[in-house]
Design a protein around this nucleic acid. Structure first.
Length: 364
DNA sequence: AAATCGGGGAT
DNA sequence: ATCCCAGATTT
């Protein structure tokens, strides 16, 4: 039996019907008219988009997805790419471990799977950077496998549809069972994308458009008159403030001194300007005491940047430096080519604070 | 189970 | 200011 209840089958039909009428055209997606004929998207495209979309909005991903396909049209191309080029292309998208795992995964697919992605959840989940969600999503969307696709959108839809009182993340296994029960044998990929679209456009965190929802007749949270209070969530603690300093050295040819961060941890493998550690300063210690090399450092203000689990305030210093006076850790990069470096946003902010025109378009 | 890991848009 | 986004990995 496809569904535990006839009610679940009704809900599934209503959602797919809604998707056929409202689906969004996205670069990695096969539209319903083709999907209904059994056409599936390229697994490489589906995987690439799903990894980019982890904790990242559709709007932010579009440009990066197109850029990656242009640079590396197949998973083989990506497997053979230079990791430094991949980090540069990923710069600005965040969660940089994704980029390193992306490269590792491409290498595994090319080297151990003959260039083809595994066509099932178990095989997919064994690959780097692919967890419960991405394995289920790729299996459903690229291989028509019936799997429980549960992301933040679906958690919200399901928690409201069934008025689930258990707070996240403890409620995940219950939600997964509910989603799988709703998932049809036919068009599981379209069903998954429909659930996510519903969460993104109708069943929104604030002020959901319940009157337009295909589930409006059976939603228990709507019947209780408080759909916005779902999903229940455990409380989160507030972010601490960390302090530090960044040093922007400029030579006579208008180049900036850069270095590479360690491959693991925060901003792992990305490029930075020299700086202090990012912690609450001890009594009596000042940022300028931690200069990377002797120079006439001039303070040029502070920048702030908010990370997932702390807020950072960086004092920015600038100095004109001769090349012979620096250490051997890094390299000098012309200002004109800074834009193409693997600089995370916080580092672009620091450099822009010291050199306001650094990332502006060239003027003739 | 809790902590780590970015960045930006919506409200 | 707060929330949250097509989450995964490590501790």
């Amino acid at each position: 039996m496809m569904h535990d209840t006839a009610k679940a089958a009704d809900a599934t039909f209503l959602l797919l019907d809604w998707y056929d009428r409202h689906h969004r055209d996205l670069p990695w997606r096969v539209a319903p008219p083709m999907a209904r004929k059994g056409v599936v998207a390229d697994p490489y495209h589906v995987w690439l988009s799903e990894v980019m979309l982890q904790q990242t909005t559709v709007q932010a991903v579009k440009a990066y997805f197109n850029k990656f396909l242009m640079l590396w049209p197949t998973v083989i191309d990506l497997a053979e790419a230079n990791i430094e080029d991949v980090m540069k292309a990923w710069a600005g998208l965040g969660y940089y471990a994704r980029a390193r795992n992306l490269k590792k995964c491409a290498e595994a697919v090319a080297g151990e799977h003959g260039g083809r992605f595994p066509d099932n959840e178990e095989g997919l989940k064994a690959l780097p950077g692919i967890g419960d969600y991405t394995a289920a999503a790729v299996a459903a969307i690229a291989f028509n496998r019936r799997s429980a696709v549960l992301d933040g959108n679906v958690e919200r839809v399901i928690s409201r549809l069934y008025a689930i009182e258990t707070p996240l993340p403890a409620a995940k296994s219950e939600m997964r069972a509910r989603v799988l029960d709703l998932t049809p044998e036919d068009r599981p990929g379209d069903f998954a994308q429909a659930m996510m679209d519903l969460g993104a456009t109708i069943c929104t965190p604030k002020r959901p458009a319940c009157s337009l929802c295909p589930f409006r007749a059976s939603c228990l949270a709507l019947a209780m008159a408080d759909p916005e209070t779902f999903p229940r969530k455990a409380e989160k603690k507030q972010k601490p403030l960390r302090l530090g300093a960044a040093f922007v050295a400029i030579d006579r040819s208008n180049a900036v001194y850069l270095q590479k961060r360690a491959d693991t941890g925060l901003l792992g493998g990305m490029t930075e300007v020299p700086g202090t550690g990012w912690t609450a300063r001890r009594d009596g210690e000042t940022s300028i005491d931690a200069q990377p090399f002797a120079a006439s450092w001039e303070p040029c203000g502070t920048i702030t940047h908010v990370f997932t689990h702390f807020e950072l305030r960086l004092s920015v210093y600038r100095a004109n430096v001769q090349r012979a006076e620096t250490g051997a850790n890094g390299w000098w990069e012309p200002i004109a080519s800074l834009k193409a470096q693997a600089l995370p946003t916080v580092m672009k902010k620091a450099i822009a604070q010291a050199i306001p025109h650094a990332f502006k378009a060239e003027r003739i």
